[in-house]
Design a protein around this nucleic acid. Sequence first.
DNA 1: GCAGACCGGAACGATCCGTTCCACTGTTAG
DNA 2: CTAACAGTGGAACGGATCGTTCCGGTCTGC
Lengths: 217, 217
Amino acid sequence: MATSPGKTETPLAGRRAQAARNDEVILEAARGVFLDDPKAPIAAVAERAGVGISALYRRYAGKEDLLRQLCHDGLRRYIAEAETALAVSDDWAAFAGFLARVVDADVHSLTVHLAGTFAPTEEMGRDAMRANELATALFERARASGRLRPDVVVQDLGLLLEACAAVRVPDSERTGQLRRRQLAVLLAGLSAAPDTDPLPGPPPAAGEFDWRWRRRE
Amino acid sequence: MATSPGKTETPLAGRRAQAARNDEVILEAARGVFLDDPKAPIAAVAERAGVGISALYRRYAGKEDLLRQLCHDGLRRYIAEAETALAVSDDWAAFAGFLARVVDADVHSLTVHLAGTFAPTEEMGRDAMRANELATALFERARASGRLRPDVVVQDLGLLLEACAAVRVPDSERTGQLRRRQLAVLLAGLSAAPDTDPLPGPPPAAGEFDWRWRRRE
DNA sequence: GCAGACCGGAACGATCCGTTCCACTGTTAG
DNA sequence: CTAACAGTGGAACGGATCGTTCCGGTCTGC
C-alpha cells in the first residue's frame, strides 16, 4: 500500500508515513522484547514501541502471527549471513565470521527459542532445511581447513550457539562482549590440538534438537 | 501398609514412616520439576510426587519456602563438591573433576536459575561467599598447574556452567552426556595453547552476575 | 468537509496458580 | 477400645495475567 500517491515521496509526513514507520518500530520493539523473554505479554511490545495495542492488531492477526514473523525473519537472517560467509575465500575465516555475526545478531534466540510457540509454515520448514545445508557447507569447509578437531560434528554448532545465547547480563552491549568471549573459548575448544583427549559420549545427532520446533506448553 | 509395627524400627510402616518418606519424595519431585522449569506451578510438584497439595503445604510455608530450600541445598552441594575436590592432590584433576560433578548434578540450575524467585536468607549469603572462595581456590590451583591459558579468570566459570546448563534435550540421561561434551569443549578452550589469540573484550568481573540474586519478575 | 484509515486504551473473558479449607483415614496414646 | 489427631487428597477461592475485542476519538487524503 501507499506506493504511488503523488506526494508521499518525502519520508516524514502524513498519517500514511507514520503508519509505515510504525511497521518498523513495532517489529523492532517486538524483537527486543521477545529476545529478552520469549513469553512476554504482547502489551509489553506495544509499550516498548510507544504505541497502543490496536496498532499491533492492525498488523498481525494475533500474537502467534507476530512470533512467526519474527522467527522467520531470524531464519532469513541466518541464511543471509551463511551466504555472505560462503563468499569468503578463507575457509576458517568464513566459518568463524559467520558464527560471530550470528551470535552478535542473537539469531539463535530469535529462532530456536521462539520455535514451538507457533505453528510453523511450510516455507519456514524449507528455509530451515536450507539453513542447515548452508551451515553444513560452511562447517565442511572449516573442517577441510584442518583447523577443526576431527571428532566434532555439524550438530555441535547447535550446542555452541546455545551456549552463547545463554550468556545474559542486564546490559545488552556487555552481553554482546561476553558472548564473543564465550564464542572464542568454544572455538578454541573445537580447534585441533595435538594432545587432547577425544570428546566424550556419542556426538549430537541430526534431528536431536528438532523437538524444539514441536509445539510446546 | 499395616505390617504389625512392634516398633517403628522397621523403616516401612506406619503413618509416621509414610510421612517421613514423603519428605524425601516431595523434595526429589520438586528438584525434578523446578530443574526443568523454574516457574512450574506447585501443583506439578505434588503430581510428580504422587501426593496431594496438602502434603506440600504441611512441610513448607509456601512456594517461596520450597524454592529457597531447594536452592540452599544446591548451594550446599556445590560447597561439598568443592571441598571434596580440594582434597584431591592433582590440581588439574581436582578442578576438572569438580566441574564435572557440578555439571552432572545440575547444581547451576538449582542455584542460579532459582535465585531471584525468593528472598534469600543471610545464611545463604554466607554460603554463597564460601562457595565463591572455594571455587576460587580450586581455580587458582588449576592455574598454578599451568594448564589454563593466562587470560581466563575465575568468573569465566560462571559462563562455563551457564553454557553447560543451557544444554537441554527431552531425555535427561542424554542431556547429561551432551553436557559432558560441552564441558570437554569448554575446558579444552580454556586450556593453554601455544598459538591462540587472546580472549576478546574485558573479562567477566566480580559481581557482574550478582543481579541474578536480586528479586525478579 | 467527510469517509474512513489509524490509533489509544479500557473492558472482557479465559486461564492459570498459590493458598486455604474441609472431609476423611489410619495411627497411636491412654 | 476409643477418642483425639497428625497427615492427607483435592475441591474451591480469589487474585493476577494475558490475548483479544471494541469503541470513541483524531487526523488525512480526496
